[in-house]
Design a protein around this nucleic acid. Structure first.
Lengths: 370, 370
DNA sequence: TGGCCATTTGTGAACGGTAACAGTTTCGGG
DNA sequence: CCCGAAACTGTTACCGTTCACAAATGGCCA
């Protein structure tokens, strides 16, 4: 009965002698490389070569290993790989914990691009954008061995904090307005040009000048929009009205809008974003000033539903998801090189004017009478 | 010449014999436990005890170790810890890659609560909610050793896919409407009650009946709102009009709204969310039907700016950030127990009616004349 | 047939922590 | 003063992968 040779698993190596892998309480062990190697009759190193697509593996061997992997439903342990290679295949995103439209949609753009490139995305948000909070976020991500960081960085506090990131951690900023002195690359929209497009559009319609409801003064993006608006007016020889500013929401727009609505000379208002524009529209409506017949209104962002405002909003489109994708591409490119190889070039995304019913010639103009 | 005993540094242990730690190309080694141990004159295990706050360490020793850690700016390597303990201190979130208001704000709630609990959050999004895509997302998170998963799960495809998650991975669903047969806990808003609140509100104002513009038919949340609406009408003895449905955006609302605007019998419209309501408002406006004088409109969600619609929108508030926090708390509670210990209880969040200017008594009613 | 090089495979030692156990103090009490 | 328990600390062996190097295999040509 007993075969002459007990055939104790004809394995080439003595894996049997290894002590039984101790199972942790609560978690059963999954199959590991050794299990696959044993089943395929090869060494663990060969299995490693197969999953890493190393060229020097005989086709027949590779097949046997792959079959073993399939039959055992093997998944490689990324923690072990991270430990050995110092690459986690995880990217960090530093976000701003507020429901602003832009940052959110960027996340999806980044994540899907990261997934395609074989990376997982971890998120660290900060409640307020200060040097300290951003540093804590960087630290948290660094501890988890992220290979790179994309910081949604609308304010300078973020970028200055990033310069203190641990060495070797590649960072890319997205959003904001490049001060030109960043130590790392940035993807941003050309806010200045966007503001010029709208302002020019309103002037071309025949308005004597354009009023502006700005975003928070300490946000460079808001400042760039102010600059683009102001310079366009200046170049056109138009009066430059005083700027009123507030937060990025409809409440701020409403508040400033009430003031503007009371001034009969106001015929065109450029708002720093669509939410502000919504508040302005409401203020004008309450004051009985019709849009666009008496006053034209324009926004910035092109939020998904701004085409359904009353009236549909003229605005400047920025493709946040695309910016996310570009930021990821930029990050990967810089990660591929040795540190400091490539200069911190910026990617500037062009905005696009979307004209809708909220902008029209001013009352009494020739064109409006036709 | 050769001294009999080379007196190799009077260190208690023979760390000198260990080969120099090889630096990886491109990445310099950080300080590790051994460095701290050496500086503090203790073993690496004692350092480990200190960072893990093990009680049995002499106060004086602990201080020495802490001082060494500070002076070397030591950070522990989480990959190594994960490998040893099988706990990554990372949680996974499965999200839906679309700019829907709810899911986004939940993310922030989850992340900040996770941070407080010492966890990092990794995100896997899916472009469409199918069994396969969700499984891929789970797999990706599982490979990265997440300790638990929160799935933003508005459709059943998500939950059925989750049942195939690898053993030992604790899952919690958030959103959707519990079918009652889920194998794991869920945090959700009581959509049925929310719909009843609005419908009842409109009926109480004197409307003969309430029309409904629904969300996608295959979304249980949309269905629950339909049910709550329908039953309230039924109980009140009101006519139950046909339901029109579409996507969750303003375009859908506009399309359905045009149809409803053409029907002079329509005096009250309950929309499945605020964005749909925005589209309906526009359609009514274009048709010359005044809100709320001729037609009342209500929404669902209480988006940040819905108080600035024209007119300000009556709606049902749901606190997404709070739901995110609750989901996290639920997940942590289940992770603390052995699997299957606690029954998959659900957390149901109560919605709140927010009455604003878009709802009023129907034209010709006694109350509206006063 | 033998030798040399290229290809393929195996061995042992990292990677940086934690777990288990063993050894060394310290201290109170008989 | 000695003994045992409790408190503290050190030693060794893992966790599951990759890397560096060594060994075996095979092909080709002299």
């Amino acid at each position: 009965m007993a075969t002459p040779e007990p055939a104790p698993d004809h394995d080439p190596v003595a894996y049997q002698r290894l002590p039984a892998l101790r199972p942790r309480p609560g978690k059963e062990r999954g199959t590991v490389m050794r299990d696959v190697a044993k089943l395929a009759g090869v060494s663990h190193q060969t299995v490693s070569r197969v999953i890493n697509e190393h060229p020097n593996v005989r086709a027949e061997t590779r097949e046997r290993v792959l079959a073993a992997m399939r039959s055992l439903n093997y998944r490689r342990n990324l923690a072990a790989r991270t430990l050995a290679t110092r690459e986690s295949h995880t990217l960090g995103i530093i976000g701003f914990e507020t429901t602003l439209f832009g940052p959110e949609s960027m996340l999806y753009g980044i994540e899907s691009a990261a997934r395609a490139a074989g990376y997982l995305v971890s998120v660290a948000t900060v409640r307020e954008l200060t040097h300290r909070t951003v540093l804590e976020a960087v630290d948290r991500l660094a501890q988890h061995d992220v290979d790179g960081i994309i910081a949604i960085a609308p304010k300078p506090a973020v970028t200055t904090a990033l310069t203190h990131a641990p060495g070797g951690l590649i960072c890319v900023a997205v959003g904001g307005s490049g001060a030109g002195s960043d130590p790392f690359p940035r993807v941003r929209v050309d806010n200045d040009t966007g503001a010029r497009l709208v302002t020019r559009h309103l002037l071309d319609l025949g308005h004597a000048t354009v009023h502006h409801v700005a975003g928070p003064p300490d946000w460079p993006e808001a400042q760039s929009r102010v600059d683009g608006w102001r310079e366009t007016l200046y170049e056109a020889g138009a009066v430059v009205p005083a700027v009123s500013a507030g937060w990025w929401d409809a409440a701020a727009g409403y508040e400033q809008g009430r003031r503007l609505a009371a001034d009969p000379d106001v015929t065109a208002i450029f708002c720093a974003n669509d939410r502000i524009a919504l508040g302005v529209l409401r203020a004008l409506h309450e004051a009985g000033r019709r849009v666009p017949d008496e006053v034209s209104v324009a926004g910035f962002d092109d939020m998904p539903d701004s085409g359904y405002f009353l009236p549909p909003l003229t605005t400047v489109h920025q493709d946040f998801a695309e910016m996310g994708r570009r930021a990821l591409a930029l990050l990967l490119r810089h990660m591929g090189r040795a540190d400091g190889e490539t200069p911190p070039e910026d990617v500037v995304v062009a905005p696009r004017l979307i004209t809708r019913a909220s902008s029209a010639p001013p009352p009494g103009s020739r064109r409006s009478r036709q």
